[in-house]
Simulated assay, not measured.
Amino acid sequence: MNVSSGYREAWEDFWAATSDAPGEAIWDADPSLAAQPHSELLLPYADASLPVVDLGCGNGTQTRFLATRFARAIGVDLSHAAVALARRADTEGVAEFARLDLVDGEAVRALHERTGDANVYMRAVIHQSEPEARPAVAAAVAELVGEKGRAFVAELTPAAKDVIRRAAESPQGPPPKLRRVLDHRLKPASATEEEVPELLRAAGLTVLVCGDTALAQTEYLPDGTRIALPARWFVLAGRGGA
């Protein structure tokens, strides 16, 4: 199984049109607002001597931070252009980057064979994946975690749609970074409240702890308020790892 050509092309086009400037993508928040607090939730349950794999790494901002917390950091993304951006941004070579289609089970298994059991960081990937691909995305997390690894997964809830809609319908129109998302046919917050935990459990993952949060964005409302999208986070163990 692979993602559809339309989905792949939408992401390739988005990242190809994105410059090297930090924060140009609406979700490219500073790690102090993303990977740093998220890793603090994960690390009490994880073995930091294992690698960490950042699924849907984009331009690698969070991956580079994760390299300061884990022995080895690997960022993977569907888009060739995103991987190229990530490699250029990693001027000190602290992380590794590669293209990976998360629904390609054979490719995911091959990565697991190279890394062994690993920790996983995945921020807002399931909710924008094609519905038919979501079980495979959850299965990719389980495959990479194996028995020894742990995962941190954060996904937008349906309430995020209301925040996005209000921002898009402001009198001034959608903020520029949100407009880019919409213009590239990307569909945020399309998973239901129950779907994400059900997918994770069906993949054989065990929820160790979870909670509510909001994912900070790099765009602001007309009144200057930073856009933050309601989300739910999970720390997970694989089969035999609970």
Rank of each mutant, 00 (worst) to 15 (best):
D90Y: 03
T63K: 12
A151M: 10
I126G: 09
L111K: 04
A160Y: 04
P176T: 09
A242P: 10
G240L: 07
A107N: 05
A154W: 01
T206W: 05
A237Y: 09
R201I: 12
A202Q: 13
A73V: 09
R165Q: 15
L221V: 04
C57L: 10
H127Q: 12
A34V: 02
A140Q: 05
V120T: 04
P188F: 08
R99S: 12
Q128D: 15
V145W: 04
T225H: 09
C210P: 00
R114D: 11
D223G: 05
A168N: 06
W15F: 15
V125W: 05
G58R: 04
R88W: 02
R87W: 08
L33R: 15
T225D: 10
R8Y: 13
T91K: 10
G211E: 14
D117L: 06
V207A: 13
T91F: 05
N119D: 07
R134M: 08
G238W: 04
D212V: 07
I164A: 02
I227T: 01
I227F: 01
A21T: 14
A16Q: 15
A71D: 03
R166C: 10
A133T: 07
S79F: 10
A202G: 15
R72K: 06
A17G: 07
A34K: 06
S39K: 03
A73R: 12
L43A: 07
P222R: 07
R123W: 11
P158C: 03
W27K: 02
E92R: 14
L205K: 05
A81I: 00
F152I: 06
A81F: 02
A25Y: 00
I164F: 11
N119T: 11
T68M: 06
L182M: 08
A118V: 10
L208S: 06
V52I: 15
T61L: 04
T206S: 14
A10T: 02
K177S: 04
L215P: 01
P174W: 03
